[in-house]
Amino acid sequence: MTDLFVALGSPVPVYEQIRAQVAAAVAVGTLRPGDRLPASRDLARDLGIAVGTVQRAYRELEAGGVVESRRRTGTVIAPTASSPGGTGTTSPPPAVVARARALVTAARQANVPDDVVLDVVRGVLAANVVSTGSTTG
């Protein structure tokens, strides 16, 4: 079961938090193509936020090819969302996901806060961009 967390006081807009977490869940395979997302009204009620906020997040995800809206089943993860050549979020190779999981496990064991882990990853990515001139990531 995947949980969604939103921080209302965060400078990041709530719809962006929802979009990013759904896209991340698809990228690591927690959500698979065909999985149904909660109806926007239900998710808004659960989170205690406006329906329009969730609808905007879903629209952004649909525009990015991560999800698609179907008349009968509602919002589902798009079939092409996790395929490397798909139009949605590019799925990383399983080895990369496994190493990311190992990093998180190690960070938890070392009692490193999540924010710090993210800072470390961003720092490594930035350093990699500087050293290799790569624009990916």
């Binding site: 079961m1 967390f5 759904v22 509602g74």
Partner: peptide, 15 residues
């Protein structure tokens, strides 16, 4: 009780 607090959570599955 209704959701309260700065951080809210919800499952990404349909009930």
């Amino acid at each position: 009780p209704r959701p309260h607090g700065d951080v809210r959570s919800a499952p990404l599955t349909r009930r």
